[in-house]
Design a protein around this nucleic acid. Structure first.
Length: 502
RNA sequence: GGUUCCGUGGCCGAGUGGCUAGGCAGAGGUCUGCAAAACCUUUUACAGCAGUUCGAAUCUGCUCGGGACCUCCA
C-alpha cells in the first residue's frame, strides 16, 4: 500500500503525511464569514477538504475536523474606516446582527448539504470564543509582541520577524514573503497612524459608538481582529500543534501567516505541520470577487438566477466539476465547461447503475485475461491516486476508462465471463466505495418513488406492446412525451427498455 | 512595482524526461422501424526561441502572454 503524500505549502513540496499522534488527525479548515451568502468560491475549499476528511477516515484515522464560522465580522477595509461588516449590513437590513449571521449560516449549511459535504466534527463560532481570543491577546502583549493604542491592540510584526528569524521562522515563512521588501512596497493607506508599521495587524479593534457587535475587554469595548479566532479555536480543539491546516490560497497571506505568528508567540510552535491550500475558481479567467462583480451565489447556481448562468446546475455537477481538476490548479468556470461536466457525470452515473445490476456469478477464470488485468490495474490505481495528493481527477479518468467495459458487459458486447467473478465483484465494490464514500458523489438516477416508477414501467409496457404491433405512432408518442417531461427511454439490445430521469 | 503561479488539441483539463490521460464537442461505423443511448474507430497538442540530453510538453535560459497575492475575499 502506498503512503499518503500531501503538498505542504509550508515546504513547497509533497511530503509523506505522518500524524503527530498515531492513528489520529487534527484538521482545521477556515470556514466562511457569514456576513453574506455562500458563493461558488466557497464550494471549492469545502469540497476539497471534504475529500481530505473522507480519505483520512478511509485510511483508518480518527479525524477531528474543525471548521469555524466567522460570525464576528471583520474590517471592510483595514486601515480605512473600521467597519464591522456584519453590524454595518445589519443596520441596512434592519436585522439583529445575530439574526443575519444565523440566516447566512443556515444557508451555508444548506449549501454544504447540497454538495454532500460531511459535517465537520466541531464547528466553532468566533463569537462563542471571545474569551479565548482575549486570553491569547493578553499573552501576546505580556510577551512583548503586541501593543495597545487607543483601545486597539496590534501585533508587532517587525519585532516578531527579528526574533523568530533567528529560530528559522521568519514572518513570511508560509507565503514566501520577505518582510523588508513588503514594508518597502506597501501602499500608503489612510488611518494607519495607530500602527507602528504598516505590516502590523490588529488583534483587537476598539469599537466606535455606532458599532453594534462589541465585547468588553481589558482594552475597552471592541471586537477581535481578523486572524486571532482561528489561532484561538484551533489551539483549543486541536492543540497547540496539530496536523493539517487548510483553506483557500487567498488566505495564505496574510491570514495564515498571521495565524502562525500569533500562535508561535503564544505556544512557541508553528501551529500546523501541513498547510494545504486549494486554488481559486475563476470566471472567464478572472477570479470571482466582490470587486469584479462576478460573484455567483450557491443558491443562484442551484436554482438559477444569475445573468452568467445559461441554466441551473445540480449540486452534484458542481461537485463533479470541482473533482475533475486537481485542487491546486485554478478551475475556470464557464457554462460550456459545466455542461460538459453534466454530461460526463450522467454517463458515469448510468454506467454505475448498470454496474450495480450485474451479477458476478460463480467463480471462473477470466476468458479475457488482458481485459481482466486492465480492470484490476485501473482499480488498484484509485488508492495510489488518492494517496498522491488527492488526485481525484485521475480517479475519474480511470472510472471513465471503466465505463465502456461496464456498458459493454451490460450490452453483451463483452462476454459475461470475460472478467473473473472476483474482478467483477472488486469492480462493483471499488466503484461504489470511491464514487459514494470517497468522492462523495450521489448518483441517484432513479426516482426513488415506487409509484412513479411503476407508472413509468407501465408506459414502457404500453410502448413495447405498440412496437410489437408496429404501431410506431403510439410508441413514438410515448417516448417523445416522456422525453418532454424529462424522462428518457432507452431501447436496449435485448428488447428491454430502461429509463433515466434527466 | 514586489512576491508567486501558469501558458497543453474546438472547449475544459491530467501529466515533471522516453509509454494513447480523461471529459465535452466533431467525423465514420455497429445496433435500431426511426431516434436516443450504448459500443467500436478516428481528426486537431503541448506559447515562441535557444540550450542540456540518445531522447523534452516534462529540465535550463531568454522572449511574449495571462492569472493570483501584496486590500475584504474560498
Amino acid at each position: 500500500m502506498s503512503e499518503l503524500k500531501v503538498y505542504n505549502s509550508l515546504k513547497r513540496e509533497k511530503e509523506i503525511f505522518t500524524p503527530i499522534t498515531p492513528g489520529h488527525v487534527g484538521l482545521y479548515v477556515c470556514g466562511p464569514t457569514v456576513s453574506g451568502e455562500s458563493h461558488l468560491g466557497h464550494a471549492r475549499p469545502y469540497v476539497t477538504f471534504d475529500i481530505v476528511f473522507r480519505w483520512l477516515m478511509h485510511l483508518g484515522y480518527k479525524v477531528r475536523y474543525v471548521r469555524n464560522i466567522t460570525d464576528a465580522g471583520h474590517f471592510e477595509e483595514e486601515g480605512r474606516i473600521a467597519e464591522d461588516k456584519i453590524s454595518n449590513k445589519a443596520v441596512l437590513e434592519k436585522l439583529e446582527p445575530m439574526e443575519l449571521v444565523q440566516k447566512y449560516t443556515n444557508l451555508y449549511h444548506w449549501a454544504m448539504k447540497q454538495l454532500n459535504n460531511l459535517d465537520p466534527s466541531i464547528e466553532p463560532t468566533a463569537t462563542g470564543h471571545i474569551v479565548e481570543q482575549i486570553v491569547m491577546i493578553e499573552k501576546i502583549i505580556s510577551d512583548g509582541y503586541a501593543y495597545v493604542v487607543n483601545g486597539s491592540v496590534y501585533f508587532d510584526v517587525t519585532k516578531y520577524n527579528t526574533d523568530f528569524t533567528k529560530k528559522g521562522e521568519p514572518y513570511g515563512m508560509l507565503s514566501g514573503r520577505v518582510l523588508d521588501e513588503m514594508i518597502a512596497t506597501t501602499r500608503d493607506l489612510d488611518n494607519q497612524e495607530e500602527k507602528r508599521n504598516t505590516a502590523d495587524f490588529a488583534l483587537w479593534k476598539n469599537a466606535p459608538p455606532e458599532h453594534i457587535m462589541r465585547w468588553k475587554s481589558p482594552w475597552g469595548e471592541g471586537f477581535p481582529g481578523w486572524h486571532i479566532e482561528c489561532s484561538a479555536m484551533s489551539a483549543k480543539y486541536l492543540g497547540e500543534e496539530f496536523d493539517i491546516h487548510g483553506g483557500g490560497m487567498d488566505l495564505q497571506f496574510p491570514h495564515h501567516e498571521c495565524e502562525i505568528a500569533q500562535s508561535n508567540v503564544c505556544n512557541h510552535k508553528v501551529p500546523a505541520h501541513y498547510w494545504i491550500h486549494n486554488n481559486m475558481i475563476t470566471i472567464n479567467g478572472r477570479k470571482m470577487g466582490k470587486s469584479y462583480n462576478n460573484v455567483i451565489t450557491l443558491t443562484q447556481l442551484f436554482n438559477g438566477g444569475h445573468p452568467l448562468l445559461e441554466q441551473v446546475y445540480h449540486p452534484m455537477v458542481i461537485r463533479f466539476f470541482i473533482l475533475q481538476t486537481h485542487y491546486r490548479s485554478t478551475l475556470d468556470f464557464s457554462n460550456e465547461a459545466l455542461q460538459a461536466s453534466e454530461k460526463g457525470l450522467k454517463r458515469l452515473s448510468e454506467a454505475f447503475t448498470n454496474l450495480k445490476k450485474l451479477t458476478p456469478g460463480n467463480n471462473h477464470p477470466a476468458t479475457d485475461k488482458n481485459l481482466d488485468n486492465k480492470v484490476q490495474k485501473l482499480l488498484s490505481e484509485f488508492e495510489e491516486f488518492m494517496n498522491d495528493d488527492f488526485s481525484t481527477a485521475k480517479i475519474l479518468a480511470n472510472m471513465f476508462e471503466l465505463v465502456p467495459i461496464i456498458n459493454g458487459i451490460k450490452d453483451k458486447h463483452i462476454a459475461a465471463d470475460a472478467l473473473n467473478a472476483d474482478t467483477l465483484r472488486l469492480l462493483q465494490e471499488n466503484m461504489k466505495l470511491y464514487i459514494e464514500d470517497i468522492l462523495g458523489l450521489q448518483l441517484n438516477i432513479t426516482t426513488g418513488d415506487n409509484k412513479m416508477e411503476s407508472i413509468i414501467n407501465m408506459l414502457i409496457q404500453l410502448r413495447k406492446d405498440a412496437r410489437a404491433k408496429k404501431d410506431y405512432a403510439t410508441s413514438d408518442r410515448i417516448r417523445n412525451d416522456l422525453q418532454a417531461i424529462g424522462i428518457q427511454l432507452k431501447d436496449e439490445k435485448d428488447g428491454n427498455m430502461s429509463f433515466v430521469i434527466n
